[in-house]
Design a protein around this nucleic acid. Structure first.
Lengths: 223, 223
DNA sequence: CCAAAAGTGTTCTCTCTACACCCATGA
DNA sequence: TCATGGGTGTAGAGAGAACACTTTTGG
C-alpha cells in the first residue's frame, strides 16, 4: 500500500480564484494534469510530505496547509493501491507569483476552467471548494487570499466569486469593517473608479487572534 | 506501510456522554485500552474498514460515521509505520446498549474519566471533542444523541455538558423549538420535577432536510 | 457637468438576552 | 400550601437587509 498526498492550492490574483495544477512528470499518465502531489516517505508525516512536495514542484515554501480529507477508494489509482491525504491552502498570488518559473511545471488555472484531472482529483477539488465556502461563511479566512494592500470592493468581488452571488456594497463594507480586522491606509486605488477606494491591510495581530471567531459573513438567501 | 482506522464513538445515555473503548486483543500492548480500530484490507476503502471493524468489535451496525482526520506521524505506532484514518460517530446509547454483550470487549466510559489510551489515541479523542463542539454550535447534530423520546431539559443538559456552561432554560427551549425539528408528544416525564416536562421526538423528515442548516446554538459568552 | 463607483444614513424587522413571572403538582 | 422545576412574557439591545442618498473625480 502506498501513501500519497495531494495539495489543492487556491490563489487569488485580485480578479479570479485560481487553482494550482501540474503536468505529471512521470508514468503512468505522464503529461496529464493533476494536483500537486507525491508519495509520503517512510520517515515523514503526511503534513511534512505535503510541504516538501509543494515546495519541490511549485517553489511555494512556508504555505500554511490544512488537511482536507483522506481518499482511500481501493481503485482510485489504476496502477497500485494508493491512499491519498488531501491538503488545502489559500494564498495571495501576487506575493508568490514570481516563484513559478519554468523550472516548475506548475500552472495556475481559473477555478472553473481548468483541464481534466487524473484519478479522483476532481473529487478532491470539489470537496475543497465546498469546504472553502463553508469555512469562509464563518471565519474571515478569505482575507488570507488578499494582497498586502487591497480595497473593500476588491474583497467583495472575492466573496461574490466564492459564493456566486451579489452582496450589497454598503452592508458588506460595514460588516467587514465591524470586525476591526482591517487597517485603513492613506492612499486610494483609482483603477476601478474615479472617486477611488481606500486601501486597507490586515491587522495581523487581531487577525491571528480572531481567525477562529465566528463571523457569519454570508447574507441570508433572498427568497 | 500499514493503513489503519480508529473510531471515536460518542454515546449519550440521558445523563452523561460516553466514549466507546476496547481492550486490545492482540500484541503489542495487549490488554491495554484503545479506540475501536483495526487494519484496512487491500480491497476495501477506509470508510468500509471503519464500518466493518466497528461492527466486529462492538456489534454496532449501520452507524453513520464521518472522517475526522488522518494521523500519520512516523513514530505514532511503536512497532511498524502505521497511518490511521480516524472516524467519529454520535449515537443514542439506549438504542444500542443491548448489543454490547460480553461477546465484545467494548465498554462505554464517561468521556472525562476513562483509562489511559495507547499510541496517540488521546490526541484523536481530543480532536473529536473539539470538532463536536464546533459542529454542534452550528448544526442540530446533538439531537442524534437523544433517545427516541426526550424532554427539552434533558437536551439542555446534553448541551451544557458538551459546552461546559449553563444556558438560560427559557431561551434554550425557545431556540430549540424555533427550529421546528421537534414534535411534542402527549405525555410527560415526571422523574425530574413535579410539574413534569413534555416529551418530544425528532421530526425525522425535517431533521434530515435541515441538518446542514446553520443554527447558532451556543450563546455568546457572558463577559 | 455628468456618469459611475465609493461610501454613509436611515428605517424596519428580526433575533438574542436577561430576567420576571406564571404553572402544575407531589409531598 | 409550598417548594420545585417547567415553561411563558417581555423589554431593551443589537444585527441584518434594503435602499435612498451623498461624495469624489476623470472625462
Amino acid at each position: 500500500m502506498l501513501l500519497a498526498v495531494d495539495c489543492i492550492i487556491f490563489g487569488f490574483d485580485g480578479q479570479d480564484i485560481k487553482l494550482l495544477l501540474i503536468q505529471r512528470g512521470f508514468q503512468p499518465r505522464k503529461g496529464e494534469w493533476s494536483l500537486v502531489g507525491g508519495f509520503v516517505q517512510p520517515d515523514e508525516s503526511a503534513d511534512a510530505a505535503a510541504a516538501r512536495i509543494l515546495k519541490k514542484l511549485s517553489g511555494l515554501d512556508g504555505i500554511y496547509m490544512e488537511q482536507l480529507h483522506t481518499f482511500s477508494n481501493p481503485d482510485r489509482d489504476t496502477v497500485e493501491r494508493t491512499v491519498s491525504v488531501a491538503y488545502t491552502a489559500l494564498i495571495d498570488l501576487q506575493k508568490f507569483k514570481q516563484h513559478l518559473h519554468e523550472d516548475f511545471h506548475a500552472v495556475w488555472f481559473p477555478i472553473n476552467q481548468h483541464p481534466e484531472l487524473i484519478f479522483d482529483h476532481q473529487l478532491m477539488v470539489n470537496k475543497a471548494k465546498e469546504q472553502l465556502r463553508y469555512k469562509a461563511a464563518l471565519h474571515p479566512l478569505l482575507l488570507e487570499l488578499m494582497p498586502a494592500k487591497f480595497t473593500i470592493p476588491q474583497l467583495q468581488q472575492l466573496y461574490e466569486s466564492v459564493y456566486n452571488s451579489e452582496f450589497d456594497k454598503g452592508n458588506f463594507s460595514r460588516k467587514i469593517l465591524s470586525t476591526k480586522l482591517l487597517v485603513k491606509l492613506a492612499d486610494k486605488d483609482k483603477l476601478n473608479s474615479k472617486k477611488g477606494a481606500f486601501y486597507y491591510r490586515i491587522d495581523r495581530k487581531r487577525y491571528d487572534a480572531n481567525k477562529q471567531a465566528f463571523l457569519n459573513f454570508v447574507p441570508d438567501p433572498k427568497i
